[in-house]
């Protein structure tokens, strides 16, 4: 039976389970990611850092979290 308290999102191309009503700040905390080192896109739209606490993730949301790596 499906657990009604959780939802599946697509996180960096992979299926990822979150609690219902998780916001972006909570997701970052859970992933132990500092917000000043990343940028986040939800469903193709960049989310400004000050809006993370207000953005509640929904089932099937496509979330991309990116950072800087070595490159030429």
């Amino acid at each position: 039976m499906n657990n009604l308290n959780v939802a599946q999102i697509q996180l960096n191309g992979m299926s990822y389970e979150i609690d219902n009503d998780t916001n972006l700040s909570e997701l970052l905390n859970r992933l132990k990611i500092q917000k000043n080192k990343v940028a986040i896109e939800v469903n193709g739209e960049i989310v400004e850092k000050n809006k993370y606490p207000n953005l509640i993730l929904r089932k099937n949301d496509k979330v991309e979290i990116v950072h800087f790596i070595g490159g030429g």
Binding site: A39, H67, F68, G70
Partner: peptide, 9 residues
């Protein structure tokens, strides 16, 4: 120079 890539979750 640096590149932008997905964080390894």
């Amino acid at each position: 120079t640096v590149a932008v890539r997905r964080v390894n979750i």
